[in-house]
Design a protein around this nucleic acid. Sequence first.
DNA 1: AACTCAGCCAACCGCGGCTTT
DNA 2: TAAAGCCGCGGTTGGCTGAGT
Length: 294
Amino acid sequence: MEARAASQFSPFSMSGNFCSEEDQLLEVKKGPWTEEEDALLLNCVNVYGEGRWNSIASFSGLKRTGKSCRLRWLNYLRPDVRRGNITLQEQLLILELHSRWGNRWSKIAQYLPGRTDNEIKNYWRTRVQKQAKQMKCDVNSKQFRDAMRFVWMPRLRERIESSSANNASSAMVDPINNFACTTDHHAAAGHPTSNQTAYQVVGKSGSSSFDRSLCSEMAIAASSSDLSYSGSTQGASLAPTAWDPAGSCCTESSINGGGSCSRHEGLIDEGDLMMENLWYDENIWFLQQQLFDD
DNA sequence: AACTCAGCCAACCGCGGCTTT
DNA sequence: TAAAGCCGCGGTTGGCTGAGT
């Protein structure tokens, strides 16, 4: 990405990146950062420390605003920034925390060490909101939140458990007092299965319009639809996330393209798990039926 | 091979709150 | 106490990439 940015805006064309006439007068540069700029900013932060971004912007000689410097530091240059796929644990945590705090990205990010609010926000928008769109309901609707709580999150927990069972040494570490493992409001001891979780939630809260049979059926739908892709590399590349319902498992394209889908119960390695689809067509179909019935 | 499109992510923008003067 | 400046947050956008046609 950085190479990408660097090639896009070579130092020799920097003068071309001033957006407005006003920016040109003030010599404010916008757009992707170059390696030189990164080095300069890094050096300045090492010298002056974090904070006082406007001062850093002017001391550094960078033709950037303090805001831009801060953003670049927080989202990219900070030494503890984690890169790579959002893990299942992180996904679950994001869902949990979002259900509690909503779009408080920076607050959520505090519980995901190394992840930035921007990254989490992007994850939410690209993955989770896509699911809502496919279910033809609003991401903030009760239906969608229920779907997350009663199907997706239990399903994620199952995946995490089976993953950690397969890798005995990689027990799930919960950063905030088992928040992710048990869901506090569910008050479920241990790590319930999706069925258990659904019943516990409904039985305990009593406030949800998600009835017992619905939960049960959803859980059955979720657990019985353990379809995972096996076959061509094309299929593998079609599975971008653990969420994506249309992109990964048994999509029309993968089937038509000669890939094979199979139900399986067995060992799934972490890499496959990351890519595996948790939300399958039949789950979506089932939920949509429920939503329309409402 | 060329084109289109969707996904993804880095970066920008606007706004509100806090701090300083 | 009011005004100005700064910082941080959440929403939005622009552009690259890769898959599909």
